[in-house]
């Protein structure tokens, strides 16, 4: 049985809808990945706990609310505390370049701006996730 890439998709913060996150989740599923979909209003604690229990390779965080500079760093900090900093963290949404740079300094692998095609995200994950387990 070949290893399947497992991805957690969550929307931290208080935004009202998760259409974009769902589109990405379906695209990743259609690319053969296992997508654990958490939906709206997730706290960094919920996200990191789920990522650990589900042993995911990738965490995709979708944000619109502008709270990215607190929520994403919190996720990164919790991952470190749990020894899970090897997970690939991706951000999506409206995030200014300056913030994107500092998030990358904190260990976020990639920020996808609005209008990113889903196949770019699929390709990025396929290229950047460890393929062999153990």
């Amino acid at each position: 049985m070949a290893k399947k890439i497992r991805v957690l998709i969550a929307k931290p913060g208080l935004d009202g809808h998760d259409r974009g996150a769902k589109v990405v989740a379906r695209a990743l599923r259609d690319a053969g990945m296992e997508v654990i979909y958490m939906g709206l209003h997730q706290t960094p604690e919920h996200i990191v706990e789920a990522a650990i229990q589900e042993d995911v390779d990738v965490i995709g965080l979708s944000l619109l609310s502008g709270a990215h500079m607190t929520l994403i760093p919190d996720v990164m900090e919790l991952l470190r505390e749990n020894g899970a900093e090897d997970m690939v963290v991706l951000g999506g949404g409206i995030i200014p370049d300056k913030d994107a740079r500092s998030l990358k300094d904190m260990g976020v692998s990639m920020i996808f701006g609005p209008g990113t095609r889903t196949d770019e995200i699929v390709e990025y994950i396929q290229k950047n996730v460890r393929v062999a387990d153990e």
Partner: peptide, 21 residues
């Protein structure tokens, strides 16, 4: 799991938020 792509959308956790932490 989708028999065509091998992918899956696993959404049960959405309803289990109360106990997740």
């Amino acid at each position: 799991t989708s028999p065509f792509t091998g992918g899956a959308l696993l959404g049960d956790r959405i309803r289990m938020n109360e106990v997740a932490l």
